[in-house]
Design a protein around this nucleic acid. Sequence first.
DNA 1: CGGGCAATTGATAGATGTCAAGAGAAGTGG
DNA 2: CCACTTCTCTTGACATCTATCAATTGCCCG
Lengths: 219, 219
Amino acid sequence: MQISFQPEILSYGAGARLRSQPVVLRPVTLRKGSILFRQGDRQSKLYQVVSGWMKLSRVSLKGQDLIVELLFPGDHFDLHSLLDSAPYGFTAASLSAHPADLHCLHPDYWSNPNLVRILHQQLAQQIRRQHEMMAALASESVEQRILLVLALLARRGGRREGSSMVLPMPLSRKELAELTGSSVESTIRTLTDLQRRGLLHWSGQEFRCGQDFLNSARC
Amino acid sequence: MQISFQPEILSYGAGARLRSQPVVLRPVTLRKGSILFRQGDRQSKLYQVVSGWMKLSRVSLKGQDLIVELLFPGDHFDLHSLLDSAPYGFTAASLSAHPADLHCLHPDYWSNPNLVRILHQQLAQQIRRQHEMMAALASESVEQRILLVLALLARRGGRREGSSMVLPMPLSRKELAELTGSSVESTIRTLTDLQRRGLLHWSGQEFRCGQDFLNSARC
DNA sequence: CGGGCAATTGATAGATGTCAAGAGAAGTGG
DNA sequence: CCACTTCTCTTGACATCTATCAATTGCCCG
């Protein structure tokens, strides 16, 4: 079952049209779980997520994957590989359970002031989310880290239903573990524990939990 | 004893001189361990580290501090608070054992293309370091995380002496713990363990270790 | 039908946080 | 200059969280 999710594709304003150039170079479609580029690749392009979700992940010394960033419709990547021209520090792929549609943008994005403003905004928010995740990884329990991810998903794709929140869970258990920096087993144990305590319910790819429960993830 | 450390203060090129405006608005001097701004403050200025070290830290839910970024002479901050105009997400302070000198830069930095290029470079490197640290926090031991910090200090202020590296350790044990996301006790235990195994020696604020030992921290 | 993968549960070991206590260093005030 | 306080650094004992290993189930896909 596909989760409906209204994309917030941003318009680039008059700047692009005035120069009568198309901003979108070409569309890209990814099957579920397929890789767009790999850690170490050298080309640096600008993509925008149109539908579906993308994950940016790196492998650690021990061969474990860590999802460094989760991308939603409207998000651009990779912003910082544009700033320096170093090779990609991570692998970009669609989530294992969902296909994704992307736009590969025209290389002269820097001449479009509207787009540049959007990119700067997204870059700053990305850094803030990373700080939050670093703090959580450093000093909080697996439960708190999962809560943080749930709060993120609620912000980006959740809807209220009475006093509870319904949020999409496009991630497999393995991906959720890679995003929270814990093992699959610990992640599952924590989820079932939350369900047993009546704080969280799920069916298929939808999670449901109390509003105040999510708020306890605030930093 | 003060550690000598050659600052790599970058020149801003002809752009600033051409407009015959001074880039440096005013100098700032911080005593050891004093706070420049706090998490939640709303003013967003651009500073450059001239001498000494700065730390950017945030407090987690449990009241623990985590050092999110360590700044060396030549580094600018806070770059991403300039991009959006949200309040600071962390507290900026000099290290507890060293004073620091800063430059508060003129607010029209965006019109200086040379400076913008430098800022973009530093921003990208900062994000890459954060990804590295996130991966380390998620899946590596305290020893590996300390090694990562030592490698960083070696890159930024170390010197070779024969086959071994001598590197400055401006951080107190507490700060080193906050930077590696572990408790002070675990940090100390790991350090003494490394010394007992003959891999690391220290006297005062200088650490000495083998080159190949540091290389084992590479990702 | 069979193979492979995701999800789940149990048992166990190991790493690390927490608490407690003491030594040393540094700052402060008389 | 000396007592006093305060903070950092250090070590030990212990509890607890979480990774790891192992095994089972169920599902999807060929």
